[in-house]
Amino acid sequence: MSSKRTKLQEDTHFRVLRLLQENPEMSQRELAEAVGVSVGGIHYVLNALIDKGLVKLGNFTAAEDKRRYAYVLTAKGISEKAAITRRFLLRKMEEFEALRAEIEALSAEIDDDAAPSGTSHRVCVIGRLGQGMS
């Protein structure tokens, strides 16, 4: 089983790869803001992705400042992004199912404590959750 730190790192890599695939010309500052980490953190992540061969630097030709770079996913980067996406989705689905079970348990607990008249709040809460699922 992966550690929490490894999962967070992989989630960050997933988000960065996804953003760069959509817009390779994002600046480090824009990436940092979109991912929710510091600019220094994004710099570290980008260097790690470059070292792994998942991202390569290209010139950002439209910029007046020729020092700007585009961060382009390599073929290996696109393949790894697909694998990370699968793992990310599975992890989020597991988290969702655990949260759903906790909500059902808490709703049942509320029903047991607060509804001697026979009314059920649990159906209402779970029903609202299911509405956003389609």
Rank of each mutant, 00 (worst) to 15 (best):
E25Q: 14
I42M: 15
L19W: 08
T61M: 12
G53H: 09
A63K: 05
M26V: 02
R67H: 04
R29N: 06
V55T: 07
G58N: 15
L57F: 06
V35R: 04
Y71S: 06
N59Y: 07
L19G: 09
M26K: 07
E33K: 10
A62C: 08
N47K: 15
H43K: 14
A63T: 05
A75G: 15
A32I: 01
R68G: 01
Y71P: 01
A70G: 12
K76I: 02
K66I: 07
E33S: 06
A62Q: 14
D11H: 03
Q28D: 04
D51R: 15
L54G: 00
M26W: 05
Y71C: 03
E10D: 12
S38N: 02
G40V: 11
L49D: 10
G40D: 15
Q28C: 07
K66Y: 00
A32S: 14
R29H: 10
H43M: 08
F14M: 07
N47H: 12
L17D: 06
T12L: 06
H43T: 12
V72Y: 12
Q28P: 00
D65S: 03
G36N: 04
L31V: 05
K66F: 00
Q21S: 03
T12I: 01
A70C: 11
I42N: 10
L54W: 14
L46F: 10
Q28R: 13
G41A: 11
A34S: 13
E25C: 14
D51T: 13
I42K: 03
K56V: 12
T61Y: 15
L20K: 03
A70N: 15
A63N: 03
A34D: 04
A48R: 14
I42H: 02
L19E: 12
D65E: 03
V55H: 02
G36Y: 01
L46S: 09
I42V: 14
G77D: 08
R18T: 04
G77W: 05
A70R: 14
G53Q: 04
V35G: 10
L31E: 08
V55G: 03
A32T: 11
V55Y: 03
T12Q: 06
H13S: 10
R18K: 13
D11I: 01
K52W: 11
R29E: 12
R15Y: 10
R29L: 10
T74G: 05
T61E: 15
H13A: 03
D65I: 00
T74F: 05
D11Y: 09
F60H: 11
V45D: 14
V35Y: 05
L57Q: 13
L49H: 08
N47I: 11
F14T: 02
E22A: 11
Q21F: 09
N47E: 15
H43F: 11
E25L: 08
A63M: 01
